[in-house]
Computed example of a mutant assay.
Amino acid sequence: MDGVEDELPLEQLSDIKAKSIAEWIANERVRRSIVRHFRQFLMTYVDEHGASVYGQRIRNLGENNSESLEVSYLHLALSKPILAYFLTNSPTAMLAIFDEVALNAILVYYPSYERIHSEVHVRITDLPLSSSLRDLRRSNLNNLVRVSGVVTRRTGVFPQLKEVKISYCPNCEGKGPFSVNSEQTVYRNYQKMTLQESPGSVPPGRLPRHREVILLWDLIDMAKPGEEIEITGIYRNNFDASLNSKNGFPVFSTIIEANHVNKKEDQFAAFRLTEEDEKEIRALARDDRIRKRIIKSIAPSIFGHEDIKTALALSLFSGVSKDINRNTVSAAHQRPPPR
């Protein structure tokens, strides 16, 4: 009961008594209230059928040894709107709290989970407001944003220093310099990629703009150059020595620290067929004229060109793997025999 008394009621969280939302969240009573209400959201939010949404996701997280828990912003805004408001305006502090709550929630089902992963990362999906890369301004700094574009460049994966303890020597009371123990230092996976505006979104006569995106933990290698993706992350400023030397006064570059990466093609992969759709597909598969019907359905307004339409149909459906001398060869890598 003492812990509950030290928390603020949910209706009082919106009465911000600090200079900024970040300072308000740093208040211990406010933080405890956020922890309790987000835990309650994860455990009690249900879908239209009355089934727990995030209880099942947390169990799947432990079964698959994953470290990312996807949370829909729309669900959070519907159930706990004040938490959603804090999240968009102070995402760094809120995500740190969400990660802590998610880890404690999964430890209830899997007490040994920390032997595999020391942290769980809450990934925010379905952020309603989308911005273009050229529309990001000072007002978006340190806020949660959603942008889309094409990956043009990607670096390798590097270990980034996450936690190192620097203290004084108890024997001589010296304060350094000390050498870093690389074995006991905590690192995290780090990767940088360049996101450029999609060709169709660039205004006429303008050059496409780009932003650097930072990928951490299990988000590395989520996208490769040439893919069109959607990024939900924190828009930050970053000190750039080259800009300062060029301009002669403090100028900061900007980056996006990714929280969630979604490929545009994954939006179609997430589509689920209904039972009626499966019945119709199986009925079409039994049709003797299915090959001709598929070819005729390609560009029906263009007469003729049967060879081109056949080639398009075959490229859409691809083929099956062939077992040649016990070596499985993909249909995409087969070559016709020499004539």
Results as ranks from 00 to 15, higher is better:
Glu48Ile: 08
Glu11Ala: 11
Pro208His: 05
Val122Pro: 02
Ile290Phe: 09
Arg57Ala: 14
Glu275Ala: 15
Leu83Pro: 06
Ser132His: 08
Ala93Phe: 06
Glu306Val: 10
Ile16Ser: 01
Val164Gln: 07
Leu76Pro: 06
Lys192Tyr: 00
Gly149Asp: 01
Thr125Val: 12
Gln184Ser: 15
Glu230Leu: 03
Ser118Trp: 11
Pro81Gly: 03
Asn143Ser: 14
Ser201Tyr: 07
Asn27Tyr: 12
Ser20Glu: 02
Pro338Lys: 11
Phe41His: 01
Asn262Phe: 01
Glu67Asp: 14
Ala77Tyr: 06
Leu144Gly: 00
Arg36Asn: 10
Asn237His: 13
Glu197Gln: 08
Pro177Trp: 05
Tyr235Thr: 02
Gly248Met: 09
Tyr235Leu: 05
Arg339Met: 06
Val180Trp: 11
Ser20Lys: 02
Val150Glu: 06
Ser253Phe: 03
Arg36Phe: 11
Ala283Gly: 06
Asp307Ser: 11
Phe268Arg: 12
Lys279Met: 10
Pro300Trp: 04
Leu129Met: 13
Val53Ile: 15
Tyr187Thr: 08
Ser33Arg: 06
Ile295Gln: 12
Tyr168Leu: 07
Asn181Val: 09
Ser52Thr: 15
Ser14Glu: 13
Gly205Leu: 07
Glu227Gln: 15
Arg36Pro: 02
Ile25Asn: 04
Val320His: 11
Glu114Tyr: 06
Lys165Gln: 06
Asn238Phe: 06
Arg29Phe: 10
Ser79Asp: 13
Ser182Gly: 02
Phe158Pro: 04
Ile255Glu: 15
Glu28Tyr: 08
Arg134Phe: 02
Leu195Cys: 08
Phe317Trp: 04
Asp266Leu: 00
Pro204Phe: 13
Glu275Ser: 08
Lys309Pro: 02
Ile234Val: 11
Ile281Glu: 02
Thr125Asp: 09
Arg272Gly: 10
Thr328Lys: 15
Ser33Tyr: 01
Ala241Val: 09
Glu197Cys: 03
Cys169Thr: 10
Ala223Met: 07
Leu129Glu: 14
Gly3Tyr: 11
Ser179Gln: 04
Ser253Ile: 03
Tyr110Glu: 05
Arg154Leu: 05
Lys224Arg: 11
Ser14Trp: 10
Lys279Gln: 14
Glu228Leu: 08
Gly205Glu: 07
Thr125Phe: 04
Val53Cys: 09
Glu23Arg: 07
Ser198Lys: 13
Asn89Val: 09
Gly248Arg: 03
Arg134Leu: 01
Pro203Tyr: 09
Gly55Thr: 03
Pro170Val: 03
Asp2Ile: 12
Met222Glu: 13
Lys264Gln: 11
Glu257Tyr: 07
Val164Thr: 12
Val122Phe: 00
Val35Gln: 10
Asn104Val: 04
Thr44Cys: 02
Leu8Asn: 06
Ser179Ala: 14
Ala311Gln: 11
Ser297Tyr: 03
Ser330Val: 03
Thr232Met: 03
Val147Asp: 00
Ala241Gln: 09
Ala223Lys: 00
Pro128Ile: 08
Ile82Cys: 11
Tyr113Asn: 05
Phe38Val: 09
Val30Glu: 08
Arg39Glu: 13
Phe86Pro: 00
Ser79His: 14
Ala22Glu: 06
Gln267His: 06
Phe41Cys: 07
Asp135Thr: 14
Val4Gln: 13
Val213Trp: 01
Arg36Gln: 09
Met193Gly: 00
Pro159Thr: 02
Ala105Cys: 10
